[in-house]
């Protein structure tokens, strides 16, 4: 399947794996994919949100979740990457989004999977997938966003 990915999409997927590993996550999730796809530029314009905004919104969701269970991490700053030498595997949501992006590209008669196909697949994820929470935190309505750039 990966041979169908355009160079930008491939960079996004590789970037998502690297991010997950450096942060110490056990799986590559849909949130990692979104942040990496946004870094590829095209998707930022389509979505109307920047990678930096998405990263900050995700960090804010983390802080709020920790506060909700009574943990205050205000004094913590990351000093370096978590030393996970093995690259984490894809979580089931991320796997589903990747194969869905292929179906979307095929349906659009595009030869390659572009970042926008990945973005569309991520926009289809329903709650409680964390990426759906992240879209909500960014003030993005996934249904509306998909409708906005589907007829192209």
């Amino acid at each position: 399947m990966f041979e169908r990915f355009s160079p930008a999409s491939r960079a996004a997927v590789t970037g998502a794996v690297g991010d997950a590993r450096d942060r110490g996550d056990r799986r590559v999730g849909t949130e990692h994919l979104l942040l990496a796809v946004l870094r590829e530029g095209e998707a930022e314009v389509l979505l109307g949100a920047t990678a930096a905004q998405a990263r900050e919104a995700a960090a804010d969701l983390d802080r709020r979740a920790l506060t909700a269970v009574g943990v205050d991490t205000a004094g913590f700053t990351q000093k370096g990457p978590a030393a996970k030498r093995k690259s984490p595997a894809f979580g089931s949501g991320a796997k589903a989004a990747l194969s869905r992006s292929l179906a979307i590209a095929v349906a659009a008669k595009d030869k390659r999977i572009e970042p926008r196909h990945l973005l569309l697949a991520l926009l289809e994820r329903d709650r409680p997938d964390p990426v759906a929470e992240l879209f909500a935190a960014l003030g993005i309505d996934p249904t509306e966003a998909r409708a906005r750039f589907l007829p192209r």
């Binding site: 942060r23 110490g24 996550d25 056990r26 969701l61 983390d62 709020r64 979740a65 920790l66 909700a68 269970v69 943990v71 991490t73 913590f76 990351q78 000093k79 370096g80 990457p81 978590a82 030393a83 996970k84 709650r127 409680p128 964390p130 929470e133």
Partner: peptide, 22 residues
């Protein structure tokens, strides 16, 4: 809200990995 609680667990795991590495 399980979504919030489980997100906190993920964040704590991440935090533990980062503190451990440092």
């Amino acid at each position: 809200d399980p979504a919030v609680g489980l997100r906190a667990v993920g964040a704590l795991h991440r935090l533990a990995e980062q503190v451990e590495a440092a």
